[in-house]
Amino acid sequence: MNDRAGETVLRLSGIEKGYNRGKPNEVKVLRGCDLTVARGEVVALVAPSGAGKSTLLHIAGLLDTPDAGTVEIAGEALQDKSDRRRTLVRRAEVGFVYQFHHLLPEFSALENIMVPQLANGVARGAAEARARELLDSVGVGARADHRPAAMSGGEQQRVAFCRAMANGPKLLLADEPTGNLDPETSDRVFSALMQLVQETGLSALIATHNLELAARMDRRVRMNGGLLTAG
């Protein structure tokens, strides 16, 4: 764990979320989840399919709002802030990685990593330099000019990691980031992700079914019955 781990980057307190509220078919997904992630800490979120881990990640990343509870990123409570403020914080402080890479097919690997930087006001030259640095750091610098369709699944996902890291976020949220890969490729890609996280000192909350990968993280939490428990 990073030696600056006393700083809390993500704090979720009493998070509740349901769907079809007030109706006979109401589904209560989250029933009061509490979680803190410290600076430099990598936390595994282990849960069966349908347990609500994606919902929790979307709330943590300000893509959805809870029915109750508070969401703090870097000490700022954001659950009731304006859409504009939430968007600004999400763009600057949060990086997302999904099971499928979601790269823009018409752009090269380099351009895919430049896009979020340009949207954040970074100059083109600086954005390109940052993109090349990230690609080199995960071993796919030689693929910078290739479009996603010309890359392997493992290469695509490493580019997706770089894109998530492009704006220097404090928090990385990943939803089954190696779920579509074979075991050998999954191991290589996860190692590249961990290297990126450790080199930058950011925090990460990573949802995975893979208990071997979860064991390589600093701490594990389990979701069951809409609640989080240690380990």
Rank of each mutant, 00 (worst) to 15 (best):
V9R: 00
D3H: 15
S186Y: 12
R11D: 11
E76C: 01
Q195A: 10
S191P: 04
S137D: 10
A127C: 02
F107I: 05
V197R: 01
N120S: 03
S82Q: 06
A215R: 15
L10K: 04
A192E: 09
P105H: 02
C33E: 08
I113P: 07
A160Q: 03
R130S: 11
T36V: 12
M165Y: 04
N25T: 14
N20Y: 15
R86K: 14
T178N: 04
K170W: 00
G153L: 14
R91I: 02
L30N: 10
D182N: 03
R31T: 10
N210L: 12
V43K: 00
A60F: 13
P183G: 06
S203M: 07
R219H: 13
T208P: 11
A214E: 06
A92F: 00
F161C: 03
Q99R: 04
I206K: 00
S152F: 15
L88D: 04
E184R: 15
F161S: 01
T65R: 13
A92T: 00
R222V: 15
Q79T: 04
D67T: 09
A215M: 13
R143K: 02
R84P: 09
N25H: 13
R11C: 08
D3L: 14
A60K: 09
Y98W: 11
P66D: 01
L118Y: 04
V189Q: 11
E16H: 15
R31P: 07
V71S: 00
L104M: 10
G201Q: 08
Q79A: 05
S137H: 12
G153C: 14
R124M: 08
D34K: 06
A119V: 06
E26V: 08
G69V: 12
V97W: 01
S152D: 15
D67P: 09
V189L: 14
L205R: 01
R124I: 11
T55K: 03
G32Q: 09
R222F: 14
D67G: 09
A119L: 04
E41H: 01
I59H: 13
K53D: 02
F190M: 11
E176P: 01
R39L: 02
M114V: 04
L104I: 15
L103V: 03
D83S: 11
A74D: 14
S54D: 12
G154H: 04
G40M: 12
D145G: 10
V46Y: 12
R158Y: 08
A123C: 12
G125I: 10
V140W: 03
P148Q: 00
R90G: 01
L10P: 12
L110Y: 07
N224L: 15
V43G: 00
A164K: 01
R163H: 08
V221F: 13
T36E: 14
A150I: 12
H101I: 14
M114E: 02
L202Y: 06
F107R: 02
I15D: 04
R188G: 11
L181M: 07
R216F: 06
